[in-house]
């Protein structure tokens, strides 16, 4: 915590508000078998802000994202050293994994609606966590779809298969599905990279709105997207976190020459 305050003061001295940390990573090493995918990463994610993780392919940014809700557990031979915390609790020791994943929702790169109706897609999460009443579910489904700005497009076909939607609609459905379990943190793993520009813009607008309610952490290949949407940015290279700070600052006055090269488009 102390370190975080110091860092903030150093990078953005003009900011009067010191934001609260929602999730934090300390001295994180992550291995896939012999390969070290993350090297000694320390980074805080401030509450109710959008943090973008940028860097070239294979730099570890998606790996870090998946460490935050333990989706890396599914990978054979994945080993994690160091601390990952949510509200100060160690997520690998003190938080049951299914609670963690409810509180830290995730939207994937490819839209992955379940092969069932739109309604059942959204209701799956709440049902998982014990909500059975039809009336209650109806309210959650409508609210989630509204929050993901897709209600008007699907309200007349809730019982139809979600696989009939367009790619952009499917991705917003997946966002609604993630919102339906009332997460505190939302992880977006290049969630617009498979979409057309119009769908991308819709999702970017959503993410900006979400910042008032959720802590958003997004991996993106698109630097303009990071600029448009995020308030904090961290730059990764070969498993190391090179630099992190306010997005505007990092893009206009990068401290590290490698960051400068990347954001000016010299590689990656």
């Amino acid at each position: 915590m102390m370190q975080e305050i110091k860092q903030d003061a150093r990078i953005a001295p003009s900011l009067p508000v010191i934001s609260e940390t929602k999730m934090g990573v300390e001295e994180l090493d992550l291995f896939y078998g012999e390969f070290q995918a993350l090297k000694d990463v320390t980074l805080d994610f401030p509450k109710n802000e959008v943090t973008a993780l940028i860097g070239p392919s294979g730099c570890g940014k998606s790996t870090l994202l998946k460490a935050l809700n333990r989706m890396n557990d599914l990978v054979d031979g994945c080993r994690v050293d160091g601390l990952v915390s949510l509200d100060g609790d160690d997520i690998y020791r003190d938080v049951p994994v299914n609670d963690l994943r409810r509180r830290v929702g995730m939207v994937f790169q490819q839209p992955n609606p379940f092969p069932m109706s739109i309604y059942d897609n959204i209701a799956f999460g709440p049902r998982t966590h014990g909500i059975k009443g039809k009336a209650e579910l109806d309210v959650i489904v409508e609210q989630s779809l509204r929050d993901a700005a897709i209600w008007d497009e699907v309200k007349d076909r809730l019982k139809k298969s979600a696989l009939g939607l367009s790619g952009g609609q499917q991705q917003r459905l997946c966002i609604a599905r993630a919102l339906a379990v009332q997460p505190e943190v939302l992880l977006l793993d290049e969630s617009t990279s498979a979409l057309d520009p119009i769908s991308t813009a819709k999702i970017e607008d959503l993410v900006v709105e979400f910042a008032s309610k959720y802590t958003v952490i997004m991996v993106t290949h698109n630097m303009l997207q990071a600029l448009r949407v995020s308030t904090k940015t961290a730059f990764f290279l070969l498993g190391e976190m090179v630099e992190a700070g306010d997005t505007d600052e990092l893009f206009t006055h990068p401290k590290d020459s490698r960051t400068a090269d990347y954001v000016s488009g010299r590689f990656g």
């Binding site: 809700n69 989706m71 599914l74 299914n98 609670d99 963690l100 994943r101 409810r102 929702g105 995730m106 994937f108 490819q110 992955n112 609606p113 379940f114 092969p115 799956f124 999460g125 998982t128 966590h129 997946c174 599905r177 993630a178 379990v181």
Partner: peptide, 17 residues
């Protein structure tokens, strides 16, 4: 698709569910 299974887990479902 593996993504269905992952999507369910990411919502906090147990492996069995």
């Amino acid at each position: 698709p593996k993504s269905y299974y992952e999507g369910a887990l990411a919502l906090g479902a147990t492996r069995e569910r």
